[in-house]
Design a protein around this nucleic acid. Structure first.
Length: 939
RNA sequence: AGGCGCGUAGCUCAGUUGGUUAGAGCGCUACCUUGACACGGUAGAGGUCGUUGGUUCGAAUCCAAUCGUGCCUACCA
């Protein structure tokens, strides 16, 4: 039977099988409940949708590992657990990717194809490659509900997006207008503030002289972008700036305007608070169409807006020498021309931060253009309130502050993009009156003038608009009649948790909160009494909790990036080490707040852990088989062993180590639950690791080998032990299964097969999660085992020091005064344990504590190994001196404190007592060491 | 310019509301092919907790300063 399991754990042999099994058996799919019925306890959450174009990266894997651990954990605790998977159409990213592919093919490009043909191509592309993410997720073991999978552009969600847009428009929360926006000249589209990354760069500050039109003087302005002067419409100074008071109201002649546009242009000098007397010369040129601040000044002073660039940031100025030049080329030329004309006064080095497009890396060009915006303040107000009142909790908590600060300084959200791939804005422009008609379905006539010649808006919506609606759109919002009365929504909204990275806190988390609080407020929900009630803000929030995890970096703590070439592909590492090992590594490193330096060395260690468990499973199979051959059949209630019944009964006649392992199991179950409740994946993982390897394998399995003597007929201890071994292992597998789902599934199924009992559930994932109260907790057994373990370790340690050959057995002397003898009523057993674990031949109880080179003392016992040997006097003296130094240090520290009146008076009694006791023990040990030192023969 | 975080063993990290002599994994040293496992076992070595000062009976933990380091937000021409 044991030959069925290979000697070493081979993840590749089992992972695919179970991944497929879980999906095909639809184990994690949850049906829609009848309208108005909600599960009593639930754990609902949605997957932050990866880009449909993408491959999973390490960040996804961390995210999904954490979510899966939580989902499996909650599910095994009997809650209705739904994890909704999906992908995002990712407007810009996808469009770029397909364009690149078109370029590679050498055929017609995007513009040649035209809008319809191009989007058709993107859909084909999505059909072909869009499933990759899902396949990768299956390899990670993500226990998602595939029946609820979404794509942000599918028909259902598209309808919801349209509905949301129209409602916002009708509510006056969407407006359209010509404003200055962040413009990506490569993609030729507007992007939101968040899609701009700032970078410090060394630039120049150019000082340029503008002569007064009346010839009475001149004023020098400072700018980092001289090329924009072609669009200047004024020069501003601070009204309080004495130097320039007399200039205000006059006009200056724009240098180069003759070159640039033909006529020499005169522009006014104005006073505006924006001008900072401290910066540059105190005078600033005003270019409303190419700078957001200047735009604001322009509005205040009703200045004209002069655009001088096209959508690719090339100068567009009829008759100008610079017409058609790239903005940076034009800058060079303009500086040269200014120098030649004598208008250039000075060039200073100037470090300033510039905005780059997150997507293309191109310098953002502020551009005046017609865009669609969401009036954000009313949405933000509710979102702030929801978090303020504690309806949404953040972990780690400090993100609440980050969220709050951003929310309180929020700007209107530019939601239009000049792209083709995305949700097309449901607005139609009238050729007749020029007005806009916003509607759910294509209108036949203009809602303003009734004319029939309508053109649909060409812009699409920002990707984050649709993803911001997900928490309710995935559950069927807005419903059939638009009343949002869907069974899913009623049962599953708000979701319980959102797990995500801080990088999309504003992009996505904040938007979901704003849109959720807006759209779900007042929507009917079950009132728990069979009726309906309107949602308040508390139930309008998209999720109750947000857990923000860290970034996964490489082993050198560098951010992974394609340009650095240090990107670790999760699929590569799971192929190499197995999914479970990688999952476990991420989990064991995932403590809130700090980034994860992903190390292969650690992953290797966790593969070894998987292998350890694998071999423990083989050991069990072997014992079960041995038992069967000797007529010891494991007769177990599969329901109970499989944990579907919470049974806390200690098997009758359970020996010490069995009582101990059950007690430890119980304690560890408690620890794991506590840790996972606080999102301490690291603590939980380490607790299971320590238990499984350090206690179950290192001690329990070793001790149990003594008990499983099947040669004796009717050996009750053997029977009880075998049964307990199986029970504990079964529970330990269940405990580990959220972290290592593949290995535990295989081992668990194999365990039942070898017992010859059918499994109590289709999958380990559907069994009960072990909980503290499921197992008997015998505290005495813990004390006794601690002493036993220490005793064994001490003897082993002495043996090494005395260089006793491994195979040789020795007698030991134990001074048992200190130990409660009652812990070890069975002296034969003690000898068995010591014999097995430390090659002890005989135990003699002695009257006085033994001392010397062959003895060891702790607070709990004194033990000596009886063995004739040549003592290495020098080495022994060195060891004793070192020990003495340690005792002295501890003793001094203790005495210093005990001699301190303040300590004795103020410290809690148990601390003082503990210290006294410890000092006394140390003193005794020190005396013994001193005696041993004195007893050493002089060289 | 504001805000947040980090600095503990060679490496990667834990360290709960301040409480007895600071932990884990990997790596390192020595020994061991013992019928679950060499992806293993056993026993070890290794840290004045970045620095300085303060609060306290008591500080890795709280406060201040300082050095180093990472990140986020922002309309400074």
């Amino acid at each position: 039977m044991s030959s069925e399991l290979p000697k070493a754990y081979e993840p590749s042999l089992i992972e695919e099988k179970w991944a497929k099994f879980w999906v095909e058996q639809r184990l994690f799919e949850v049906p829609t409940p009848p309208l108005g019925e909600a599960p009593r306890k639930h754990f609902i959450h949605i997957l932050p949708p990866p880009n449909v174009t993408g491959r999973l990266h390490m960040g996804h894997m961390l995210n999904q590992t954490e979510m899966d651990i939580l989902t499996r954990w909650h599910r095994m605790r009997g809650e209705t657990a739904i994890w909704v998977p999906g992908t995002d159409h990712a407007g810009i990213a996808t469009q770029m990717m397909v364009e690149r592919q078109l370029a590679a093919e050498g055929g017609p490009g995007r513009t040649e194809l035209g809008r319809e043909a191009f989007t058709e191509r993107v859909w084909q592309w999505k059909q072909k490659y869009g499933g990759a993410i899902g396949e990768q997720m299956q390899r990670l073991g993500a226990s998602v509900d595939w029946s609820r999978e979404y794509f942000t552009m599918d028909e259902r969600l598209s309808r919801a997006v349209k509905e949301a847009f129209v409602r916002l428009w009708e509510q006056g929360l969407i407006y359209r207008g010509a404003y200055i926006v962040n413009w990506d000249p490569v993609l030729a589209t507007a992007v939101s503030d968040l899609e701009v990354v700032h970078e410090e760069r060394a630039g120049k500050l150019y000082h340029i002289r503008y002569p007064l039109a009346d010839g009475t003087g001149s004023i020098v302005i400072a700018t980092t972008r001289p090329e924009t002067m072609l669009g200047d419409v004024a020069v501003a100074v601070n009204p309080a700036d004495e130097r320039y008071k007399q200039f205000v109201g006059k006009t200056v002649v724009l240098p180069l305007s003759a070159v640039a546009g033909g006529q020499a242009r005169e522009i006014p000098m104005i006073a505006d608070e924006w001008a900072n007397p401290e910066f540059g010369t105190g005078a600033v040129k005003v270019t409303p169409a190419h700078d957001p601040n200047d735009f604001a000044i322009g509005q205040r002073h009703k200045l004209p807006q002069l655009s001088i660039m096209d959508e690719h940031a090339h100068i567009r100025l009829e008759g100008s020498a610079y017409d058609g030049q790239d903005r940076f080329v034009a800058r060079e030329h303009i500086v040269e021309d200014l120098r030649a004309s004598g208008a250039l006064v000075d060039i200073q080095d100037h470090v300033h931060s510039i905005g780059l497009s997150q997507r293309t890396g191109e310098v953002i060009e502020p551009r005046l253009s017609m865009q669609w915006f969401i009036k954000i303040q009313p949405l933000a107000d509710k979102a702030i309130e929801a978090v303020d009142k504690g309806y949404i909790r953040f972990t780690p908590e400090n993100y609440r502050k980050t969220y709050d600060e951003w929310m309180r300084n929020i700007h209107d959200w530019c939601i239009s993009r000049q792209l083709w791939w995305g949700h097309r804005i449901p607005a139609w422009h009238c050729a007749g009156c020029g007005e806009v008609t916003v509607a759910r379905e294509a209108p036949n006539a203009c809602s303003h003038c009734g004319a029939g010649e309508l053109m649909q808006e060409t812009d699409v919506l920002d990707t984050w608009f649709s993803s911001g609606l997900l928490p309710f759109t995935v559950f069927g919002w807005p419903g059939e009649g638009g009343d949002a009365l869907t069974a899913d929504l009623a049962a599953f909204y708000p979701t319980d948790l959102l797990v995500t990275g801080f990088d999309i806190l504003f992009f996505w988390v904040a938007r979901m909160i704003m849109l959720g609080c807006h759209f779900m407020l007042d929507v009917p929900m079950p009132d728990g009494k069979g009726g309906l009630r309107a949602r308040t803000l508390k139930d309008a929030v998209p999720f109750r909790e947000v857990y923000i995890h860290a970034l996964v970096r490489d082993a050198e703590r560098q951010k992974m990036s394609k340009t650095k070439g240090n990107v670790i592909d999760p699929i590569d590492v799971i192929t190499k080490y197995g999914t479970d090992a990688v999952r476990f590594t991420l989990a064991s490193q995932a403590s809130p707040g700090t980034d994860i330096a992903f190390s292969e060395a650690r992953t290797e260690g966790n593969r070894a852990f998987a292998n350890k468990i694998w071999n423990a499973a083989r050991f069990l199979q072997m014992q079960i088989e041995r038992g069967r051959e000797a007529g010891y059949k494991v007769t177990l209630d599969a329901q109970a062993v499989g944990g579907n019944v919470a049974a806390a009964v200690l098997p009758e006649g359970a020996p010490l180590e069995t009582r101990w392992i059950f007690a430890r199991l119980s304690a560890v179950c408690g620890e794991v639950a506590r840790s996972l409740n606080g999102y301490r994946f690291d603590e939980a993982a380490n607790a299971v690791y320590q238990f499984f390897w350090g206690e179950f394998c290192d001690w329990y399995v070793e001790l149990v080998k003594l008990r499983l003597d099947f040669a004796v007929a009717k050996n009750d201890t053997a029977a009880v032990t075998l049964e307990s071994l199986v029970k504990v292992f079964d529970a330990a597998l269940r405990l580990l299964s959220p972290f290592m789902p593949f290995l535990t599934e295989e081992s668990w199924q194999a365990l039942y097969a070898s017992i010859g009992v059918s499994v109590p559930a289709k999958s380990i994932a559907l069994t009960r999660y072990p909980q503290a109260e499921d197992f008997p907790f015998d505290e005495d057994s813990i004390w006794a085992m601690e002493i036993l373990k220490e005793l064994i370790v001490s003897i082993r340690s002495l043996r090494k020091e005395m260089s006793i050959p491994e195979k040789e057995t020795v007698p030991v002397q134990i001074f048992f005064e200190r130990v409660a003898r009652s812990y070890f009523p069975d002296e034969a057993l003690l000898l068995d344990f010591l014999g097995r674990s430390a090659r002890v031949a005989e135990v003699r109880y002695v009257e006085t504590p033994p001392m010397g080179a062959n003895a060891r003392s702790t607070g709990a016992f004194d033990v000596a190994v009886v063995y004739e040997r040549q003592i290495d006097v020098a080495a022994e003296r060195e060891r004793l001196l070192k020990e003495l130094a340690k005792f002295d240090k501890g003793l001094q520290a203790a005495e210093r404190q005990l001699g301190n009146d303040g300590f004795v008076a103020k410290a809690p009694a148990h601390i003082v007592e503990g210290l006294k006791k410890q000092a006394a023990e140390t003193r005794a040990l020190k005396e013994k060491a001193e005696a041993a030192l004195a007893a050493l023969p002089v060289e």
